[in-house]
Write a protein that binds this DNA or RNA. Structure first.
Lengths: 340, 340
DNA sequence: CTGTTAGCGCGTTCAC
DNA sequence: GTGAACGCGCTAACAG
């Protein structure tokens, strides 16, 4: 068959009209039969179904949505190049929608607000039924538009406007959980090496960490969170300093898994065993980092898939009714490996 | 304004009809004016443009594509959960299409061929203008369908059918380049620790490695490629064995960056300096892995963005003409850091 | 130059 | 039960 030396496309798709002709009924009847509407005789319905099957008919969504007013598509606008956060969220959303029932336009704005507007316009022209905006950081962001004709849910980075609907990880609780986990292991001389100091995620986790310590009348080593960057290098250098100053150090809460890797490296070079002397607990549960090291790293998983799933079902709710505005916070879970 | 306690959506979008009424012309004239067609007086055109601006009109793509026969959308079906390969490809494709001109449906089939068919059907119902299929491995895969009504390009994993159009990294050349790079540094006692033995990527890189050594009358240490898994752990254990057997080892080509990290760890524990005693070169150039270690890892970048860009422009070509079938191979580039 | 007419493919009244 | 007729929003062919 397709033995043409160069690729070409001539196949065309069957139309409802053709199905109707083949079944010898009107277009209207064919439509009713296929959509399982009432007022159509069983035998007629069967003729139509057979004809449709024979022609491998499937309805043209363009035309269908033009008359129905719903497209069955949603837009996902992300600013997160790496996809570290937006892909799990996308997958969660796909799950919530049900495979194939709703199609997702993925738009990468690359942190550029002009490109973001461009994508937004394209999505509106295409009449998406809703939009999910995924931020690159957890910092609150400006709303993507005012009085849009479709519902919008903000995921990962909440909207600054309290009248919008947002879903984010619960960073405060995650920080507190991390500390309690270490405390329950009997660790009491705990340090916190975090990431960039103006990231909401870093700040809120730090608040949770501090609060959980206070609950038990404890404080952080150095009485502060050490902010720096999200890198292994920072984890290494910060840990080296801790090693010098605090021979009694017995646990570190690391701002992410990269910092955790750096800390592990520094501890091992100093001959401090992990986890027997110092326990290590990071955030993000990025498998390529956590399962490669020896010992493997325990980590707080922020459940991005759940964030996506919740965002999708909220969007669903807004499409067919009304939803309370505000920020939803999704709980995290600790994945135990060998470092803590 | 939007001070309602719960989110709702009532805004509706302006239609061409409304623009025409406001400008006091017929719908057809309005259409011509907005689409910059001929046969419309300058003053009339301006009236229409003003009206459109005032109503913030933008055309309904559903209706437009229904009459034009083109939707301006493409589908990207991927099986690669992590997005390690498909996201750069997606970004390359977006670039090639031009932001906003073409919208991309992202479908994650998760390696499940049933889900893949489901997504394919949905894309066809939505009348996408073309489809890019991104594999999870570089192994050749079965065509996604026969005689589809739209052009298809396979990226990363080529189609088994030589009449299809595929774009993949050039793994043989990448392997050869890696070895030549080490040879040019004066390394001659080179080992190759690769990944899973039935991955085309692993096999082809190995072929390139062997061939490039042969060019200079050399062979691999142990006279073979060491296959295993794509993990740090495998890199570690394989390297430990090499250290025992080959005190003259001076370079390792690692199947990916994770193996490279593992090798680095083993070498450093043995007190073998990198790069002065042993040079290390991996594949993939996954920054989170390569820039976190000390020394930072040099790596062969397989240029996934270029793969995506090429796939997109081939798709473009097929949409508006004809394209030679077959497999295109995209060249890699070596990113030099500190390990080689 | 402009307006009228006729589709694109489908869902949905409303007569018959 | 069935089918003709209309509309979704827009573009294209033809008259004026």
């Amino acid at each position: 068959m397709s033995a043409t030396p160069s690729s070409e496309q001539t196949n065309t798709r069957a139309t409802l009209k053709q199905v109707a002709q083949l079944a010898d009924v009107s277009i209207a009847t064919a439509s009713k039969a296929l959509n399982d509407r009432v007022h159509v005789r069983a035998s007629t319905r069967q003729r139509v179904l057979d004809a449709a099957a024979q022609l491998r008919f499937s309805p043209n969504e363009q035309a269908r949505s033009l008359s129905m007013g719903q497209t069955g598509t949603v837009g996902l606008i992300t600013g997160d190049l790496e996809g570290r956060f937006s892909l799990p969220i996308l997958m969660g959303a796909e799950d919530a929608f049900g495979t194939g029932r709703m199609s997702v336009f993925l738009c990468d704005a690359r942190g550029d607000s002009i490109r973001e507007q461009y994508h937004l316009d394209a999505l509106l022209r295409r009449n998406v039924d809703g939009i999910i905006v995924v931020g690159a950081l957890t910092n609150a962001r400006k709303p993507i538009g005012r009085d849009l004709p479709v519902p919008v849910v903000y995921a990962y980075a909440p909207s600054e406007d309290p009248n919008d609907v947002s879903v984010v990880p619960n960073d405060v609780a995650a920080g507190a959980d991390a500390v309690r986990y270490l405390l329950d292991q009997g660790r009491t001389r705990i340090a916190h090496i975090s990431g960039v100091s103006n990231y909401t995620a870093a700040i809120e986790r730090s608040q949770g960490v501090t609060a959980a310590l206070q609950e038990r009348g404890l404080t952080l080593l150095d009485d502060m969170t050490h902010f720096g960057s999200w890198s292994e290098q920072w984890g290494r250098s910060a840990t080296e300093r801790l090693i010098e100053r605090h021979p009694d150090l017995d646990g570190i809460v690391c701002g992410n898994d990269q910092i955790s890797r750096g800390a592990l490296d520094a501890l091992q070079r100093a001959g401090w065993n992990v986890p027997s002397r110092v326990a290590l607990l990071g955030f993000d549960n990025w498998e390529v980092l956590t399962t490669g090291s020896r010992p493997q790293l325990s980590s707080v998983d922020l459940n991005f898939e759940l964030v996506g799933r919740e965002a999708a079902s909220l969007l669903f709710g807004m499409m067919s009714g009304t939803v309370e505005p505000g920020i939803r916070r999704i709980d995290s879970r600790i994945v135990t490996r060998e470092s803590a």
